[in-house]
Design a binder for these strands. Sequence first.
DNA 1: AATCTAAATAGAAACCATTTCTATTTGTAA
DNA 2: TTACAAATAGAAATGGTTTCTATTTAGATT
Lengths: 140, 140
Amino acid sequence: MRGYRQKLKKNGFKLTPGREAIIAFFSGKNHYATPETVWKEVRKSLPRLGLPTVYRNLEQMRKINILTQVDGAENRFYFGLCRAKNPGEHHHHISCQKCRRVSEVENCYLQSLTKEIKEKTGFQITGHKLQLTGVCKDCR
Amino acid sequence: MRGYRQKLKKNGFKLTPGREAIIAFFSGKNHYATPETVWKEVRKSLPRLGLPTVYRNLEQMRKINILTQVDGAENRFYFGLCRAKNPGEHHHHISCQKCRRVSEVENCYLQSLTKEIKEKTGFQITGHKLQLTGVCKDCR
DNA sequence: AATCTAAATAGAAACCATTTCTATTTGTAA
DNA sequence: TTACAAATAGAAATGGTTTCTATTTAGATT
C-alpha cells in the first residue's frame, strides 16, 4: 500500500480518498474487475464517489503501472492490480477463468520468436499483447 | 471467393448480397476495419444495407472462421479476412500498424511455454490470445 | 416458372459503457 | 493559513452496439 502512495506522488498525483479506496479494493481481492464493479464496492465507504471519477483513476493508475488492463470477452474494460517486481518492464499477466485472480508472468518468452515470425511473414514485429487464461492453483 | 460461398452454405447461411459485398470488401483490401468502415464502403453498391446487418454478418462470419477479430487500441470491433490454410486450427494474426494489413501466423509458438508458465505461476493454462503488431514488408 | 418457408433484412429505437462538461471541492506546497 | 492547481460530483452527452418488428428474400420444393 505504501508503495502505491509513493508511486502516485512521484507521478504528480494527489492522494485522494477515491484512489486509496480503489487500490484497497484491488489489494483485498487480487481479482480483475470492471469499473462499475469497483465503483459499486468502493461506494460503500465513499458514497459520493462518482463513476466518472473511478474511470479516470483507473486509467491514470494504469498509465503508471499500478494497475493492468485485462482483455475480457466482452467489449469493455477490466482492471487488475499489477504486482510485478518491476512493473515498468515488459511483462504479461494471466487471469484465472474461475476466480478472476490476476498473476504476473514476468518473463516474456516471445522476444525469441521475433526473428522466426519475421522470416515467415515478412513483418517486422514492433509489439505484442498476450492475454493468458488459465485456472489458478487454488481453483484446480 | 468461391471458397467463402461454400463455407457459408456448409454452415447453413444464405448467400445474400450483403455477405458477398462484405467479403468482397475484405478481399480487395486485406486490411482490418471497423463495422462502420465496412458499412460505409459496402453501402456504395448496396445503399439499403443497414449497419445492424453488417454487425450481424461480421459476427456470423467470424464464428465460422471466414473473418478474424483484431484487437485495436480503442474499445471497439475490428475485423479482417482470415487466409489461413486451415482456419479452424489454432493460429494467430499479425497486423501492420501502418497499412492495417492482416497476415496469418500459422504456427503457434506458445504451446511449449505452457509447462514453464505453470511451474512459475501455478496456473494451468487453458487458452491464450496473442495480438501481434508490426510493420509489413511493403511499409518498411 | 410458381410457391413456400425459414432465414435475413431495413429502419427505427433502445441500450449502456464510457466520456465530457462545469461548477465546486480538496490535497498540498508555500 | 492561504493559495491554487488538481480532483471531484453530478448531470448530460456520446457513440458503438444491440434489439425489435414488420417486411423481404434466398433457396428448396413442386
